[in-house]
Amino acid sequence: MTRKRRRLYFVMLGLLGLGGGVALALTAFQDNIVFFRSPTEVAAGKVAANQRVRIGGLVENGSLVKNGENISFSVTDMSNTLKVQYTGLLPDLFREGQGIIAEGQMKGGVFVASEVLAKHDENYMPKEVADALKKSGHWQEGGVQAPPRQEGGAPSATPAK
């Protein structure tokens, strides 16, 4: 009886100590676990020039300029904006108003990206519901625009026939 009690306390204390230790470690390494930086953090000088980082935010409406494979757009977190240059293929979800993450480095005030990933949110709904929400004015979240339905998808997802 007492041995079982003792083992119970031992396991509980062990888990408590372990949990506390892991929590401390995760807090200490907070900066390394964060996957991307916001334009505000870049503006605050948290990112050194030529340092490889990921930045994330929403693609600003009307900022996208496509010139063949040369692409430029602005990423915003609503308080600061960062110009991004990129050459290559964009993921299917890439749209103005959409959340994205770009990897690259700052070069003279412009973020030169070598990779662009699309981030999506936790909202799932059919197109009709999204349209109805927008019409009734209940649409929220980062000003997401109605995406034009892409037939066939982007080059990364060619239909298998």
Partner: peptide, 10 residues
């Protein structure tokens, strides 16, 4: 079968 062009993933 075509899955709107995403058959190769789904």
């Amino acid at each position: 079968l075509e899955m709107g062009g995403y058959a190769m993933w789904v």
